[in-house]
């Protein structure tokens, strides 16, 4: 049973961009693609904890601003020759609003 909570309007995040959601256990980056899909991932690159929300978003991927690792927004996996995994969280758009699943965000704090 999902526990969707309303975070913000879709237009508060620019296309091919990201914004941060602060939680008690660190930041989650919410990405919006050119095709208006939204994805939520930990805001830390598996390489050196680079802030993924500050990266360049292209297709369904983001490039970390520190050392150009490319992370899939869908799977959280590092692309190409790099190996690493970023935690992803359920996210969706509902009537022009960005929704995140509170249960998953909470599990994050336990993990």
């Amino acid at each position: 049973m999902s526990n969707w909570i309303d975070i913000a309007a879709l237009d508060d995040v620019p296309q091919r961009g990201a914004r941060l959601v602060k939680t008690l256990h660190g930041c989650v980056a919410v990405f919006r693609t050119a095709g208006d899909e939204v994805f939520a991932l930990d805001n830390a690159c598996p390489h050196k904890n680079g802030p993924l929300a500050d990266g360049i978003v292209h297709g369904k991927a983001v490039t970390c601003p520190l050392h150009n690792w490319v992370i899939s927004l869908e799977t959280g996996q590092a692309q190409g020759a790099d190996e690493g995994q970023v935690t992803t969280y359920p996210a969706k758009i509902s009537e022009g609003r960005i929704m995140l699943d509170a249960d998953f965000l909470q599990q994050r704090s336990v993990a």
């Binding site: 913000a8 995040v13 914004r19 959601v21 602060k22 939680t23 919410v30 960005i98 509170a102 909470q106």
Partner: peptide
């Protein structure tokens, strides 16, 4: 200044 601020700030209480 919006892009520099968090989109939202969630406390656990709010999440519940």
């Amino acid at each position: 200044p919006d892009p520099y601020e968090p989109l939202a700030t969630l406390t656990l209480e709010a999440a519940e």
